[in-house]
Structure formats: C-alpha cells, structure tokens
Design a protein around this nucleic acid. Structure first.
Length: 406
DNA sequence: AGTCGACCTATA
DNA sequence: ATAGGTCGAC
C-alpha cells in the first residue's frame, strides 16, 4: 500500500477473511451500492470498486486490497470540526468490526467445514471470504419480507425505492469514478414511518405487489405493540430495540416471535435469525438449497419435478445441514448458496460469447445439463438420486411452449 | 396436520 | 414457468 486515497483509512485484513465483492452482492443486504473505479494500470494490489452503504447518520465507503479494507466516513453538512470527525471515524471502525463480525476467524471455519464435508472442499478455494453480515434486524426483516417469490435484482430495487420514498435524503456526494455525477443516499426508514396510513397503497403502486400489505402491517404491529417514543431524531425506536433483544433469546423463541409478523414464514424468519440475530447454525431452506441438497448431499427428491416444500421436509434439510457443517451451518450454507448463484451468472455471461458455432448446435436457450449447473466443478459424484427416471412431463410442456412462436 | 391455490411482477 | 414463499381455506 503506497498511498491511501483521500479521506480513507486502512484496516488490515487478509482478503481470505472477507471478500467485499462476494459478500455485499450475494443477497444478504440489498442496500449496498457498488461503483467501478477507473483503472489506470492493471495492478492487482489496487481496488477495482468502491462500495457504499447509508447508515442513519452517515455514509460508509469501502474499498478492498488484498491486504486491507479501506474505509471512509461521509457526514452530512455542516461538516463538524476535526476532533468530532475523529470520533465519527472511530465509530465507523467499530461499526465495521461489528457488521462484518471480524472477531470470527473465517479461515478457521472454512477449514472445519472442509474437513467435515467433501463437497465443501471442492468449492472453498474458489469462493473464499464469504461470511455472514451482522445486519440490523428491522431492515433485514423488511428486506426479507420483500424476498418471497422474488429474485435478488428486484428485491434490491424494492428495498432501495423503499428508502428513497420514506426517508429524507441524508447527503449527496460525487461518484468515485471521477465523472462528477452526484448520487444521493437515503437511510432505511424506521418502523413508525412504514406504519403510517396509506403506506401499503403507495408501496403497491411502487410495484411491491402483495408484499405491500405485509410490510405495512408488520410495521404497524411493531409500533402498536412497542410504541413510538418521541425520538431525538437519530436514535432507535422501541420496536427496533425489541427486535435487537431477540439476539439474546434462544433460537426457537426468537423464531416464534418473528413468525407472528405477517409475510414472515419459516424461511424468512430463518433468514432474519441467521443474518441479524446471531443464530449461526440456522439454515434457511428454499427451493435452491433443496436442489443443492438433492444433487450433492443425497437427499431425496427429483432435480426436475417440483417437490413441494413441506414443513417436514424443511426440518429434514435443516437437520441434515447442521449435521454436516456444525454450529455455523448457516454461514457455510451462505458459501454454497453464493457459489451456486455464480454458476447461474456464468451461464448468462459465457453462453452468448460463443461466436463460433458451438458443437451443440445453438438452440436458443437450451437447458443446461445436470452436470454443468452446479458450481462444484470437478465432477460432482452422481448420487443415486440425482437421476430423474421420468422427465417426460417436463419435456412435453416445453415442446408445447415452442409451438407458439408469436 | 398436511395439502392446495392464489398472489404482484419481472425475466430466463 | 419460476424467482431464495406465505396466507387462508379445506
């Protein structure tokens, strides 16, 4: 590290402990912005991106080198004096350590997961530095209410528009690419704001769909139960504090509390438990995780015909993964999940690049074969269950779809 | 107690 | 047709 960019401080941290690029865009938090930096020379020791996140009272900017996290605090005007700024910078450092849970030795966890699980061994070197964030429970809860029947890119748009619609702009600063264009940042709105009348109608018109009512009603439940104190503008509301207290509860009790909210089923509750309530062993099971379990961990089910996610099956999958990975099973799950996301992304990126005729005669949108889907590259062992003896129904449906080319 | 259809919307 | 599901009614 020769010189630090203006305003930045360095926190020594091997990239193996944290990969910002992987962690901030893998569907844990939906409110980080990533900006490419203009590259003058292809130097691997220089950051390629800047990442920004808007907290209640400041914007945190991050860059990463192989050996350090570079961080910078941006405060709204008027700019405080030097001693005050030092204080804020110290707060940001504390926030970083808490948010990224830097007390947890990720290299050690990877080693343990690898020794317990051969499947994990195959991917660990290609997906390093993927750790669980320690998010704010309120924001996390609302974000994952948005996640039902939804994909990451739309969830991201929804959460961002929620902040923009219901929070005042905190500050504006230029993009880091030197273009001079300014971007405005909005904090995540507190429960009292989303509990106000008319919110669900507005959210619907913003494209939240049936989740609009869930969000409004959940916010209302919280403020009706815990009240909304006259807050001196920059502190947490009672509802938010309540959600924080779930961290001190046993997993089952905390889960029971979360399940009381509308739009919160087992899957969403488990996401919140894992991502903001310190329940490191909780594995949120979705269709994707189910597929991974079938393909690589010998769980029953077919990789094609859709098996419905019954509560019983959900429990079975949970227990299975906890048995495989141990007390940080939820963390390990996140690594697997991210590697699988990457596998999908690769298909989107590499396929159109075949300029020369590929050996497979380019059918448009051909379905990837079983073996190329998983990110677990080096020949995944074909489990007895991975083969689906009767794909007939699926094939038939596809054939019919093709017949309407208009 | 399990199972089933509806639900907003965008995209492979 | 499905995306990291949940709700309400059998």
């Amino acid at each position: 590290m020769a010189t630090l960019p203006p305003g930045f401080h360095a926190l020594s941290l091997p990239i193996i402990q944290l990969s910002l690029a992987a962690v901030l865009k893998c569907g844990q938090s939906f409110r980080w912005n990533a900006y490419p930096l203009k590259i003058t020379s292809p130097d691997a020791s220089l950051p390629t991106h800047e990442y920004r996140f808007c907290l209640r009272d400041r914007v945190v900017c991050l860059r990463q080198t192989p050996t350090d996290i570079l961080y910078r605090t941006v405060l709204p005007d008027p700019q405080p004096n030097m001693t005050e700024r030092k204080l804020r910078e110290a707060e940001t450092l504390l926030w970083l350590k808490d948010y990224f849970q830097l007390d947890v030795d990720l290299a050690l966890l990877y080693e343990q997961w690898g020794s317990r699980d051969k499947v994990f061994l195959r991917i660990r070197d290609r997906f390093t530095g993927i750790r669980m964030l320690r998010q704010d429970p309120w924001e996390n809860l609302i974000s994952f209410i948005c996640s039902s029947n939804n994909n990451i890119s739309r969830i991201t748009k929804m959460v961002q528009s929620l902040a923009k619609e219901y929070s005042l702009p905190l500050l504006s600063i230029p993009l880091p690419d030197g273009s001079g264009v300014e971007e405005t940042y909005y904090p995540f709105p507190p429960p009292s704001v989303l509990a106000k009348p008319g919110v669900s109608t507005r959210l619907r018109s913003l494209g939240f769909g049936y989740r609009a009512e869930f969000i409004h009603r959940t916010a209302k439940m919280l403020v009706d139960t815990h009240g909304t104190s006259t807050r001196p503008s920059q502190t947490s509301e009672p509802s938010e504090l309540f959600l924080h207290t779930l961290r001190g509860m046993a997993t089952e009790d905390a889960r029971a509390e979360l399940l009381k909210f509308v739009g919160v089923g087992r899957k969403v509750a488990d996401c919140v438990l894992l991502m903001s309530l310190d329940k490191t062993d909780v594995v949120p099971v979705d269709t994707h995780v189910h597929q991974i379990a079938i393909k690589h961990y010998g769980m029953k089910g077919s990789t094609k015909g859709k098996t419905s996610m019954t509560p019983k099956l959900y429990e079975e999958l949970c227990t299975k993964f906890v048995k495989v990975w141990g007390d940080h099973a939820g963390w390990a799950h996140s690594v697997l999940f991210t590697s699988d996301l990457k596998a999908f992304a690769l298909h989107g990126l590499t396929e159109p690049q075949f300029t020369s005729p590929s050996p497979q005669k380019d059918r448009k949108r051909r379905i990837p074969d079983e073996d190329e889907m998983p990110s677990l590259l080096p020949t995944p062992p074909r489990t007895p269950f991975a083969y689906n003896p009767s794909p007939a129904e699926h094939v038939k449906k596809r054939a019919r779809m093709r017949r309407t080319p208009e």
